[in-house]
Design a protein around this nucleic acid. Structure first.
Lengths: 254, 254
DNA sequence: CGAACGTTTGAGATGACTCAAGCGTTGTGG
DNA sequence: CCACAACGCTTGAGTCATCTCAAACGTTCG
């Protein structure tokens, strides 16, 4: 299913991977840790947008580190409706959980054109055996994804449509800022309103009205794939967003 | 916060723990694995119903293994509304994720009177250093919780109220059956309709109507804390429930 | 130029919520 | 032993948020 489109040079992707791994908060990866991970990479690929790279139930023997672009994980219902269960930004170890689990309960796909590094499970096994400290850090990173799942449950279960979208835009701002892809609460989010609907558990039409409403309330503007948060404090408060669960050390609301 | 009410004898709780650890699917715990875990238990407690045992943000140096009763994890909003993000049955390592994470993003509480075994993080550190194979199994068990989070996201994000409740009742049947607490699709679920509402992202009043509807459709009856699924196949189909994500080996729909 | 796609708007239907009240059971204190 | 408070369950009526169906618009791409 993976389509090999083009390659970065070895030098380029190593720099990318290192930059993102360096920027991960919550766990402190040492230079040695980062070297072990980048040395474990067996190949680097560039994938077109809208490509499903892992199907639910498919046995896997490698995990995917996202270097550039956006990816998602989703569950489809029988009528074709889709629920996104995760949204991934550069620096994320998208399906590291396939290492202990072997097969996943959902699909993994690119949302945009994306560059990924593949890490064989055999290399992760070696890390697990030899480096218990690094293993615990990798374990942590899969649990961070679980913490994000929980925030999404709160979002979909307890917030109204406008607050749900606001909450997601706040979360994405913090995550992108941690890897240098958001500045001044402004970032590129090249996904469709239909994607946003599948993230927030709403219909695309309603998302459109919600985005309009956020603009009219001068909280934030989302147009042409660019998010501009005009009133960050106000948006966080409105969305009941507290970034604690992202384990970002320099917490913007502290 | 933990209140020491009474104790099982050492013999009793060892048998309980062993039984549940033995029944966990997805990972195969050897007798040696189970012995290592039960030997790591520092104390066993009985807690009253409706007791919050961990607050969000509180540093932890032990994890909780649930031996008897039901527990939950939840996130509260500013208006007092609560979203449950996890429901735990006997045999679950309720907050094992606090081992790599140190502090949690949510509260942990008992729903009913419950018996728990506490495992110090220092003992888990020793397992992490000495037993990479068992570490991977424990890692898996935290990822199983994440898989359940994802199923809940699908449930709340894409299903209508009646199907949401049906989906939860199917999931709970499979989980309880795996530890011998459901037989013939009939089990004890001593929680309130308000709890069910906080699980499904609905209001208690609407839950009441939904439960009535499930009864009238002769799919299942939930009364006096007892769930009886009359038409398991039909209920699964109606709820779009596929137990694959629970990694139960003897899959009832296979 | 036309097809495909994403966005935008309108109008009506419906699922779930809110407010309000009654019922049954349990536990407790007079 | 009874009265009553507390709690959970149940039902009704009206409101509101979100969905559905339908259609138009703009942009991009071939």
């Amino acid at each position: 299913m993976q389509q090999l489109v083009e390659h970065s040079s070895e030098h380029e992707w190593r720099a990318l991977a290192d930059r993102f791994l360096d920027n991960k908060r919550g766990v402190e990866l040492t230079a040695a840790d980062r070297a072990i991970i980048t040395d474990s990479v067996s190949s680097v690929k560039i994938l077109p947008a809208r490509t499903i790279i892992v199907r639910a139930g498919q046995p896997l023997n490698y995990s995917t580190l996202l270097l550039d672009g956006f990816m998602s994980r989703h569950i489809d219902d029988l009528n074709g409706a889709r629920q996104l269960v995760a949204f991934h930004v550069p620096g994320d170890f998208v399906d590291l959980h396939s290492f202990p689990m072997h097969a996943l309960d959902h699909d993994v796909a690119t949302l945009t054109k994306a560059e990924v590094a593949l890490v064989p499970h055999s290399a992760l096994d070696k890390i697990n055996e030899d480096r218990s400290d690094l293993t615990k850090k990798l374990w942590f990173s899969t649990l961070l994804d679980a913490a994000i799942h929980r925030a999404w449950l709160f979002r979909i279960g307890r917030l109204k449509a406008v607050a749900r979208v606001a909450h997601f835009l706040c979360e994405t701002d913090v995550r992108l800022e941690a890897v240098g892809l958001s500045e001044g609460h402004r970032y590129s989010l090249p996904i469709t309103q239909a994607d946003l609907a599948e993230i927030c558990g709403l219909t695309p039409i309603h998302i459109n009205r919600v985005v309009k409403q956020l603009r009219e309330q001068t909280l934030c503007t989302y147009r042409d794939g660019i998010v501009e948060i005009h009133n960050y404090e106000g948006l966080c408060k409105f969305a009941q967003f507290n970034p604690y669960y992202l384990y970002v050390t320099n917490n913007p609301t502290d």
